[in-house]
Design a protein around this nucleic acid. Structure first.
Lengths: 205, 205, 205, 205
DNA sequence: CTCTAATCGAGACGGTACGTCGCGTCTTACG
DNA sequence: CGTAAGACGCGACGTACCGTCTCGATTAGAG
């Protein structure tokens, strides 16, 4: 499983050549993802597009999926940084709007990442990072259980973003944020915060 | 792209041997899915497990994904048949419970399908079928838009089922049904029925 | 070490397709050996020349050297069948002439095999087969020891043939056979047969 | 083909460090040759064994074969210096003994060179040097022709030495020298000197 | 004893060939 | 005479070495 090829050391990360190579690979992958889904992109494509030797690819990433992670992880981390606080922010509506404003500002990138055949990878990376962050603020005994709450919020959020970006005439940021807040966030967060109004509403029926 | 092989597409064949073969393939795939994810299963594996000739596989299915569809489509159709009505049932709680009761009765099968590495394929098949069914009862102008409503309900439902089946000490049917009803169904259906302020605002534009 | 690819069964050897493929590979290798030494021939070359898929090559031979053996073994076996008896034939001169007559009749083939960069492989295959045959008629206690006798006769014979074939104006069969008989065979065989005239000649000095 | 690298070809460099490096490489190669044949030794192996940087290797030798030459050429030249005169020495027996005495004194070295997988390279280097030397003393019209005579003597001598060194219980120097003299040298030199009937016959044509 | 240039190590890189894997097609030998 | 066994072409993969090319760091050995 472990790669036989020389894996770059920490020192390597600073080598100007290696930095250049990695950047070229990232850019190339994003460029290709606009043309076809990830599983139709072959490593050779990426190398050609990046003007990088085939072997060199594997000196940096074991698989093309790994490169995708590299490309996306930082963006995801930023997005999740916005998405998670949403769950416990006082003004959830404002938080949702912040989230979609951010996505809107990187529309091209996120369209590529979420509709370029990389959706599956993005989803799990999203969840992984979300869980990491959530683990730091675990409050046991909440309802619904924290893990399913995260799963539902994250995966629904991804679906919503993905859907929004795919629309020919997309809703305004305010509209989609309202959907997000009222249908995804509040039901979970409301329930989580000691049976908030969402829960009461549910109960009163 | 078009298959050159003489391909009677025996999916429909009534021949006793063909029926036996197809059944063997279905069983074999399910057996293998318990061991490893779909994309680590190779056609040869399935044929060996089914004790069926390699070539024969392609007489029945163009790809292994196609076989998976064959295995799952009917089950999905049944499940969706339970999941969708939930949205417009009067007693949503009872509908949710029916859904999870059904899943519970086919726990093994659904565990395999949703955690056996086939999740991605299942998700899109689910959505496809859901949209098909939903299209027959389209009511334009609803809020949130029908398509995203379906996506959210279906994908969240899948996540919830998948999560539920993965638990070592799963919640009771009642508990998970409550989560489903209160966090997934009601927020969407509630908005749809109640025509809340968000919907009114959307219409007024 | 063992090949993971499906190795052809015994049955395979009879399959018309496999037979055709193997023949094509043999011919292709010989053709290429006329152009360049073995280690400048790449497997892809052979496959292209044989109009055979790259993978298919390995379905028949683990390496190109193995193919060379396959090509040469039969010829070698024939040649050795002539060369070895020479050692114990009564009329060694006639035996030598028979040997070079045979080579002359397959001049092109042997030129390729012995000067086409395959010399090393040929030499060891030669020795291997010679030893095999010689082992069946081992007479212990001979002088010089049988193993070095074989080595000397075989390797000298190869060198002589190789030299002969490389000449622009080669000696006649009779001339080269005389060299073979008088310089290579007689000294060994003469010594071997209880101090024959060669040994006596040597002693008398 | 031409090397782009700044290549001072340090073979001649006097710098103490360069001398040390070259010695380390020589020793390392010989050490490795005792373990595996030359073509299984990779440059990186040699560098590691010599505790020398990979790049540094190429500062001294264009290929590993070149290093082998460096290691062996002088030894070969000495050995050939002994082996060739044998052919025209008056007392051929004494000359043969001198040859094998020399080999015996450098048993380890020659064992490695002739059985360490470098045999092929050694053989051609041997022949090359032998021809060089022989060219200086060419006597046209001899029988058998001088070039094949050299080839046969040299290659047979190598085979004999190689065989001798490989024996668990090697013959005495006298015994192997006798084989050498009676079976390899005399038949060629005898013919050459004696102008036997074969030569006369050849001339008469 | 210092300085300056030769030598070195480390290793990223592009490249070529390798041998493997899995797919889906097509041929053939056998029942 | 149909069918399963499996040979085949294809194309991507990931590895192994090769030989080139920076970079600094060190170390002669000349002044």
């Amino acid at each position: 499983m472990a790669h036989k090829l020389h894996r770059p050391h920490l020192k390597t990360a600073q080598d100007a050549r290696a930095v250049r190579t990695r950047e070229a690979l990232r850019v190339a992958l994003l460029r290709l993802l606009e043309l076809k889904p990830l599983d139709e992109i072959i490593v050779r494509d990426i190398c050609d597009a990046a003007n990088v030797g085939y072997t060199t690819f594997f000196r940096h990433h074991p698989t093309k999926e790994s490169l995708l992670d590299d490309v996306a992880a930082e963006q995801i981390r930023q997005l999740v940084g916005l998405a998670l606080p949403v769950a416990d922010a006082a003004d959830t509506r404002a938080a949702s709007e912040a989230l979609f404003t951010y996505v809107d500002e990187h529309r091209k990138l996120w369209f590529t990442l979420l509709t370029g055949g990389a959706e599956g990878a993005m989803r799990s990376e999203f969840l992984r990072i979300s869980r990491e962050i959530a683990a730091t603020r675990a409050r046991p005994g909440t309802w619904p259980p924290a893990d399913i709450a995260i799963i539902l919020v994250v995966s629904s959020t991804i679906e919503l973003i993905s859907w929004w970006l795919r629309q020919r005439k997309p809703l305004s940021i305010q509209q989609v944020a309202e959907i997000h807040e009222s249908i995804i966030v509040t039901p979970v967060a409301g329930g989580e915060i000691g049976r908030g109004k969402a829960a009461r509403r549910a109960n009163s029926r």
